Simulated scan of single mutants.
Amino acid sequence: MKPDMGSNHAFVVWGSCVLWVTSVFAIAWSLLLFFCVGDILLMTGTDLVNAFVLLSGIIMLPTNISILCFVANSKKVDYKAKVVCCPLWLSIVWIIIINVAAVILCIVKIISCQELTTRYLTDSMQHYRSVPKYKHFMDDLQWSLKCCGLYSYKDWFLHDWYDKIRDYEWDPSLDKDNSLNKRSPSVTDSVPLSCCKSGSCISNYLTELGTHSINTTGCGPLLHRIVMISMSAHLVMFLLIVVIEIIILKLIMTKERQPENEKKGKHRNSDVRHIMSVKGNFDASSGSCQLNPEDSDELEQPILEDENTN
């Protein structure tokens, strides 16, 4: 049986299909980001936006599947139908509320993106040596983006980020204390190994040995651009979901009243037909016009006598 497209507005059908695909993509994409780059999301403050993407996708999936089931069964979408534990219209309202909150959050992130990225990177560089999560964040960021420092590799020269004993004890035969006293003033022009272009490189004494083997571009502008693009894409997605859900909710709520009005009109027409039955009135009128057989014979005799005399 073909779906009765006339009972449901075309926008309801196609909008539900788009939202269903969007919900599947949102769930898969948000989970992938959480498992693969969860630390970067947490350090850049975009983890909350990703959580809204996941929550919106989880709620949209059963809601739009319910709408598509009505369409597949050639039935009109019932906004009072149960979706998991609440009516269909309430599920759509919750989707709208969640995405509106996500839109506000994205706008706040876009406005304060420059300040936030600068602060995150500065804090990570300051606590690189003492806090493991900041070290992992900076190393992953510099390896993946092929960058070094905030605006330049020289930003590392301003922070006491290195472990002097672990990273710069060049000669094991020398006493550690003596080597620290000799070399500590000269290791300020150094960068972490994650700034290297390849697996190993010259990352210290850069003033003397040069920067040929490290990335010199800062991570700040690159991270700011990525966060801006990500937040803008999420903002557009959340706005589209809100607009589509509002239109679908309006259509399924208003369409519900039309069949009731049509039924009332049909009942009125049928009542008129019952009151003025054409067949019954026709039978009554035809019966009243029927001539009496005796009267017809009496009328025929004078007519026959006139014809004989003529």
Rank of each mutant, 00 (worst) to 15 (best):
T216P: 03
I165Y: 11
E260I: 12
D283T: 10
P172A: 07
G15M: 03
S74N: 06
V12L: 04
S203F: 11
N64W: 00
L33E: 08
N181R: 14
H136M: 13
T118L: 09
E208Q: 10
V236G: 06
C201R: 07
S179M: 12
E256S: 11
I107H: 02
V12Y: 02
N310H: 12
H127T: 04
G287W: 11
I111W: 00
I95H: 03
I97Y: 03
L90P: 02
A102S: 05
N281G: 05
N292S: 12
K164R: 08
F282L: 15
S56Y: 01
T309R: 14
L180W: 07
Y120A: 15
N292G: 05
P132E: 15
E307W: 08
N8Q: 04
S16D: 06
V100G: 06
A26G: 07
R257L: 08
K76L: 04
Q290H: 11
L19E: 02
D297Y: 12
C106T: 09
P132T: 14
D189K: 13
V12C: 07
Y162T: 04
Y79R: 15
L239R: 02
S203E: 09
T22Q: 11
M228D: 05
D123T: 06
P192V: 00
H9G: 04
A10C: 09
V18Y: 07
K264F: 06
L223T: 02
H267K: 15
E245Y: 05
H9V: 06
W143Y: 10
Q258W: 08
L116R: 15
S270H: 11
